[in-house]
Design a protein around this nucleic acid. Sequence first.
DNA 1: CCAAGTGTTCGATGGGCATCATACAGTTCA
DNA 2: TGAACTGTATGATGCCCATCGAACACTTGG
Lengths: 115, 115
Amino acid sequence: MPKQAEHGGHRAAPVHTDPAQVSVLTALSAVADPVRLQLIRELAGSADWTRSCGSFDVPVGKAALSHHFAVLRGAGLVEQRDEGARRVNRLRREEFDARFPGLLDLLLRADGDTG
Amino acid sequence: MPKQAEHGGHRAAPVHTDPAQVSVLTALSAVADPVRLQLIRELAGSADWTRSCGSFDVPVGKAALSHHFAVLRGAGLVEQRDEGARRVNRLRREEFDARFPGLLDLLLRADGDTG
DNA sequence: CCAAGTGTTCGATGGGCATCATACAGTTCA
DNA sequence: TGAACTGTATGATGCCCATCGAACACTTGG
């Protein structure tokens, strides 16, 4: 039978930050990076909990990728959950938008230019 | 009589960038800095063309300050005009807001925390 | 005409961050 | 059980950027 992550599981759960207690500067710095911007946009185009970390088309190695997701978590932008061997993601739309109204919309609508 | 900056003046006019052709990443990077954020906020609290570059209460030398204003110009956030020996500033509220709706409001309203 | 004030430019410096390669820890499946 | 896969942790590296000091250009007022 597939293991169900009983009694917490053996893996270290990802540390999350409540968007409510994220500073403006932290949020802006998190978002002012081409790779992370791409991650956010790609994530926004997918249903919640359907994208594992490795499933993003990003020109960096997996170590850097892991780092970027940590930054996004620290900015309250992304929530992660372990699902077997994979770690799946969810964009914290409403919570983040409550803290920084309009910012997420801006990133997702801004003419697609990332340069 | 006071000299009126006739026929263009001898000083190099500041180079401006139209907000309409500023990339999202450029705008975010410009704004994701504590000193520049403070400049924007202070500038937003003053009437247009009333603040010279040196009049801001910022913990950096004048060389760095000059650099920061250049970045803000390059992001389409600030317009500058020479007025005698001083260079006075104006926040390009409407133009910038037309390109990045809500971003400026976000910076100015975001709970005053800059950390 | 000279001194004081304002701002830019230049070169150098330091720190932070993005990245990588490697090693490691869990998970899945044959 | 062992090989393949997914992601994290660590140390090293390189680069970008914020900062500074100093020199320079221009303006203003004595």
